[in-house]
Design a protein around this nucleic acid. Sequence first.
DNA 1: TTTTGAGTTGTTCGA
DNA 2: GTCGAACAACTCAAA
Length: 489
Amino acid sequence: MTAPVIHWFRHDLRLADNPALSAAAASGAPLIALFVFEDDTPGAWAPGAASRWWLHHSLSALDQSLRQRGGALTLRRGPAVDTLMQVVRESGAQQVTFTRGYGPHAAPQETEIAEALAKSGVTCRRFGGALLFEPEAVATKDGRPFRVFTPFYKACLSQPVSDPVASPEAIRPPSRPVTGDKLADWALLPTRPDWAGGLRETWTPGEDAAAARLDAFVGDAMGRYATDRDKPGVTGTSRLSPHLHFGEIGPRQCWHRVHHALATGSGQDTGAEVFLRELGWREFSTHLLHHWPTLPDHPFRADFANFPWRDDDASFVAWQRGRTGYPIVDAGMRELWRTGWMHNRVRMVAASFLIKHLLIPWQRGETWFWDTLVDADLANNAASWQWVAGCGADAAPYFRIFNPVLQGQKFDSDGAYVRRWVPELANLPDKFIHQPWAAPAATLTAAKVTLGDTYPHPIVDHATARRRALDAFAQIRSARGGGQDATGE
DNA sequence: TTTTGAGTTGTTCGA
DNA sequence: GTCGAACAACTCAAA
């Protein structure tokens, strides 16, 4: 009787292009496919509500795929190291495989597991697969991690992206079944109330749906991606982000599929290149988090620790609920609340509004996104919020303050996006859809809009808020010089 | 060591 | 309405 091998599933909830899983299956030993839910790790960013919804369905889809090949998914809940070792003892497994992670807890946890397994005489095999390039493979000439995107991406492009690995054809189940939890008992889905209706309408988690999403993108929107990805009112993006986060599809699969379209030249080169570059940003964020584990909590640029943030709960709630009085911001926040996702262009505008117009700490926005986004990803979320705030790596300059009216007019020129998510403004003419306060009284009446009643007045005036933000940034600039003087004692 | 060129996504102002 | 410059300085990466 052969001792089983355990594949410990993490953010690699797929069968295809999963080198760790394929290695486990190829060993010929009976395979225990294990997922461990850790929701109580102290100090960690436990999955938010939208992520838990996605996780439930993704695990369910993975179990189904495994069953089609003769296997099944075993579910356990608890601290990863203890739980994994428990399953090793119960099953007599002699080998464990897993895909490496990159968050602040990943490396220490993986070391701890490797040591525990070694002590028990169990083989531990760690694989890549979640990134195009391992962090060790991309460095400056001095061997340091990049802090600027463009040279980082160039260094990426100078080496080949390895080919995806085929799915294991069959999975040999263990002769003695391993007990596990029932997915429903984890209560990952909301019940009282069930707010997930918009998520169900918008998304299909799972590996098959991820592959279909990539197919659809390459076959259609990719050709227009360079321009349409900026228009929140049209289907111009890939919407692969949650699938990538949970590892239902690997970045190498996306890369090669899109790169192939580029190589065979179908007049879509620009769109394909821009998309590949976005995969590059995903890499960059993860590399940053790997090298700077405090990225989710602390500003990358230390001088921002002295930034004069405001404590303004009322404004924060207005932002969360989509009631700032700026239609493009409110549309984005409501799309997020309803579907668990927000268009990239609008994320920048909404984030900029929270940080620069309201002067509320970026970490509060980051936390809200973490709870509400189905694609909530520690690296992308942290790096992007810091980028908008101006305190991140290669960040936007402080004086770049989005004007929510201009952004709306430029990227949602026909107001389709605002009309969809802020229906109380739907009858306004295009000219005022992004600035209802500027409309004549008769126009507002005709559109059945009463500012302060059916839709809020702007909670801040743009020009005033912009000035205030510039002054606040000027403060930390002068504080930097003053601080140097003060340190002389 | 010093120097040099460059750096995702913008806005405003004045000609 | 359109256009170019200013917005500020700093840090990174490489030569």
